[in-house]
Deep mutational scan, measured.
Amino acid sequence: MEVRTIKVFTTVDNINLHTQVVDMSMTYGQQFGPTYLDGADVTKIKPHNSHEGKTFYVLPNDDTLRVEAFEYYHTTDPSFLGRYMSALNHTKKWKYPQVNGLTSIKWADNNCYLATALLTLQQIELKFNPPALQDAYYRARAGEAANFCALILAYCNKTVGELGDVRETMSYLFQHANLDSCKRVLNVVCKTCGQQQTTLKGVEAVMYMGTLSYEQFKKGVQIPCTCGKQATKYLVQQESPFVMMSAPPAQYELKHGTFTCASEYTGNYQCGHYKHITSKETLYCIDGALLTKSSEYKGPITDVFYKENSYTTTIK
């Protein structure tokens, strides 16, 4: 009895394709271990004539594949690729409408935090270190965002349907971005203890939790000093293409032309909904596939993004 075979390709990165001759009487799992086709788990399936010449994702289970996976995804987590594939199996079914010149995501599976993050990423200057993220990001900007969303979920250790947080998501993504040249110098002034300067680099240099107003941050924000008295913390120097200011959701007025974009969060910790506000020729609110415009805006804002380049204080 002759062994019926077909020729397929296996890959971990969709760049390096490895030619395989597979036995049609055995499952993919018996031949390769966990195997995925377009995100779908085909591990328990036997090869079919229609699979001839198709590319299958496999887990990096030998040295060659491990090197290829690390170079593309910059992670050695053995569960990463499987999590990416199972997320992709959902995100490829989502709709990605162009809204006001940006790629958004039609609401499904509690994905409003991903839509808000995706919209924000198209408006701030950011370059990702893992080629996987950078490639998928370019495709997302062009309207094909399924891979990018699935990668975000995998890097953030999230599953489809789980509630997510924009600030946490951005923080994970910033860790995989090139923020080497970003720098922030802060000064804390206390009447009792004097003053202390701190220099922050990388992710810490672009994120701040405690106030939404970048102007206020430049002037000074009140913080408790270690001595128990009130101290003032203010920005001395900022070198970065953008800054992200966050605070627990509270009524906040966004003035046209003073910011790049913002995240609105309605609801409580267990259950809520994100919308995205962007400042173009007027203010726009993007909620999944829905767009509304207004000249002014007041609502429960939790993150505001500002364009920056270089700032030095005039406070002496």
Rank of each mutant, 00 (worst) to 15 (best):
Y36E: 01
T198A: 10
K218C: 07
N129T: 10
A40D: 14
C193Y: 02
P78E: 15
K158Y: 03
E162N: 00
L235F: 00
F32N: 11
L81S: 06
Y208A: 11
G288V: 01
W94Y: 04
Q123R: 02
Q230T: 13
F32Q: 13
I301R: 01
C227H: 00
L163T: 15
T198S: 11
K93S: 10
E162C: 04
G210F: 05
F32D: 06
L88P: 06
K218I: 06
I45L: 15
T35K: 06
F174G: 02
M26R: 07
S181F: 14
M245W: 02
E125G: 13
I124F: 06
A145R: 02
L163D: 06
Y172F: 12
A154F: 01
C193T: 02
Q216P: 00
Q31D: 05
S181Y: 12
L291S: 15
E308C: 09
D63K: 08
Y84A: 03
C149Q: 03
D135Q: 10
R66E: 11
V166A: 07
N147S: 12
C285H: 09
S104H: 04
Y172N: 14
G29P: 04
P130C: 08
R141D: 04
T76D: 12
A262E: 01
L17N: 09
P249F: 00
D62M: 07
A154L: 02
A154G: 05
L290K: 15
G53Q: 12
K92A: 08
R139P: 04
H51V: 06
Y306K: 05
N89G: 13
L290P: 00
Y155A: 04
V206D: 03
V3T: 11
D41W: 06
N187W: 08
G288Y: 00
T258A: 14
Y84N: 04
K92Y: 07
Y306P: 00
I286G: 03
T43A: 14
D63S: 13
K233V: 12
Q31M: 13
R66C: 12
A231L: 03
E204F: 06
Q20W: 08
N187L: 12
K92E: 07
D41K: 07
T260E: 10
K44N: 13
Q230S: 12
L283S: 00
I277S: 00
K7A: 12
I15L: 11
C271Q: 10
M170H: 04
K255G: 07
T159P: 05
T11P: 05
D135G: 07
V8K: 04
T312D: 07
L133K: 05
V42G: 04
C149S: 06
V206G: 03
P60N: 06
